[in-house]
């Protein structure tokens, strides 16, 4: 094993270890924060792009202005709205 390889191996072990510790210590909290943010994002799309579901709330002129930014989220949003929720989801 060359010096170079050794160093990159040590580097990799370090990274994995710190990932592992992060995973134990605060990944769940990070995920919860992102989850909260994500569901607010979906609420946001509902408010601004609500016409998609037939409930216009924001003046349509302005919702069009926001449209470009939510293009990627629209399909996941729709899927999440339509997906059947299971009680067990509440445990995750």
């Amino acid at each position: 094993m060359t010096e170079e390889e050794k160093r990159s191996l040590i580097q990799k072990i370090k990274e994995n270890l710190s990932d592992f510790i992060y995973g134990m210590a605060s990944h769940e909290a990070t995920r919860q924060a992102l989850k909260t943010r994500g569901s607010m994002e979906h609420l946001f799309i509902l408010i601004t792009m609500g016409d998609l579901l037939g409930v216009p709330i924001l003046p349509p002129y302005y919702s069009l202005r926001l449209l470009p930014y939510v293009v990627p989220q629209i399909s996941t949003w729709k899927r999440r709205m339509l997906r059947e929720k299971d009680l067990v989801d509440a445990l995750a």
């Binding site: 995973g23 134990m24 990944h27 992102l34 569901s39 979906h42 989220q73």
Partner: peptide, 23 residues
């Protein structure tokens, strides 16, 4: 596939190993 920022969010294997073990 469904990365919706709520129920589905990808994370790396080593992070998830920690997450799973802790859970």
């Amino acid at each position: 596939m469904y990365n919706d920022g709520v129920d589905f969010m990808p994370a790396s294997g080593s992070v998830l190993f920690g997450y799973q073990f802790k859970s």
